[in-house]
Amino acid sequence: MTAHAKSVRNKMFRMRALYLMLLLPVVHLAVFHYAPMYGVIVAFKAYKPGLGIWDSPWNQMAHFRMMFEDFAFLRALRNTFIISFLRLIVGFVLPIGFALLINEVIHHRFKRLIQSISYLPHFLSWVIIASMVVEVFSPERGVINYLIVQFGGDPVHFLSNKGYFVPLLILTDAWKEVGWASIIYLASISAISPELYEAAEADGANRWHKMRFITLPSLVPVITILFLLRLGSILSGGFDQVLNLYNPLVYEVGDIIDTYVYRVGLEQFRFDYSAAVGLFKNVVGVVFLVTVNQIVRRRSDYGVW
């Protein structure tokens, strides 16, 4: 055994506790994420439950051709892009702004209180939040419609109105996740050297100048990486949220690929076709991630890899 191999073995032995801790998540990843990937083959099969995946006949890419001939899929694809991009813009910008504002709060107890309150919605499931949204925006008993009526207006069916449904999705998602998403930015801000701020103060910089010329530029690497990771799930329009809030009246603007797959796969039992749609969604996400990462790497030193 070479000296290098002995050194690696000794280092691994010294860190054996860390490797044991790493074993459980690796096993979980292998069993629940990689092992089921063999089922992707069903997307290329005319699946028959009696024959199983392997013995079902090949479909000659029929499901992928069928996707682009299906009006419901094309509508879901359009809606997914619209909702995902809006969620990306609003849900990505707000946590940065919120972290910058929280960082400017001087009173530490008030700062911790605001942070704790902003984190809480993240830990609530969309089932609970959807129930709250339905009650708040209810045309009969909701507080929003109560105020509208008090000011002389007519009750609005927000969750059944195509013009209000998507903005409601974006706002409720931002409310739920803005506090939690700001944690990593706050952690990055806390790692900025205080000497930079002290030097800026000596040069006469105010709080706005320090935020603009020190804090924001220091966050660029983190912002870039998180943005790239979000692009990898660009076609994930928020299945739990949409499923708990939408209804047939807003399918035209609210039906996304995930809910489309849910209806086709689990309600209509077209497992092979729904697998093809899911595979298409993931491939598009990977293409987005790789393409944008290469563009970013050419123009800067930041990237996922």
Rank of each mutant, 00 (worst) to 15 (best):
S138Y: 11
P167K: 00
Q115L: 12
F165A: 09
F123D: 11
G153N: 04
G153Q: 05
I129F: 08
I89G: 13
V166C: 08
M132V: 11
F158V: 08
I148W: 02
P95Q: 09
F98Q: 08
P139G: 02
G152W: 10
L159Q: 05
W126E: 07
I89L: 15
I117E: 03
Y146D: 13
I117Y: 06
V143Q: 15
P95L: 09
I117V: 15
P155S: 13
G153I: 08
K111H: 08
G153T: 07
I144Y: 02
L94K: 00
I106H: 15
V105L: 15
P155G: 04
V93K: 03
K162E: 03
I89D: 10
I144C: 04
D154V: 12
L101K: 01
R112W: 01
Y119H: 10
F92Q: 14
G142Y: 06
S116F: 04
L100P: 12
Y146R: 13
E140D: 12
G163E: 01
R109W: 07
R112P: 03
G152R: 09
S138C: 12
S160M: 10
N145L: 06
Y119D: 09
I128Q: 00
I117R: 07
V149L: 11
L88W: 15
P155M: 07
L113R: 10
F92C: 13
L100F: 14
S160Q: 14
V149F: 11
F98I: 11
P121V: 07
L168K: 00
L159V: 06
F151P: 01
D154K: 15
H157W: 02
A99P: 03
V105D: 10
G91W: 09
W126T: 05
F151D: 03
S131E: 07
K162W: 02
E140F: 04
D154L: 11
V93S: 14
I144A: 01
L113Q: 07
F98W: 13
P121A: 14
N161A: 03
L94R: 00
V90F: 15
G163Q: 01
F165T: 02
Y146S: 14
Q115D: 05
V136A: 10
E104D: 01
V134E: 05
Q115P: 06
S118Q: 02
R141I: 15
Y164E: 05
F92L: 12
K162L: 02
V166A: 10
F123I: 07
Q150K: 15
V166M: 12
W126N: 07
G142D: 09
I106F: 14
L147G: 01
H157S: 02
H108M: 09
A130W: 04
L159T: 06
I96D: 13
P155H: 08
N145M: 06
N145D: 05
I128F: 01
E104Y: 03
I114N: 08
L88Y: 15
R112G: 03
L94Q: 01
V133Y: 06
H122I: 00
H107R: 11
K162T: 04
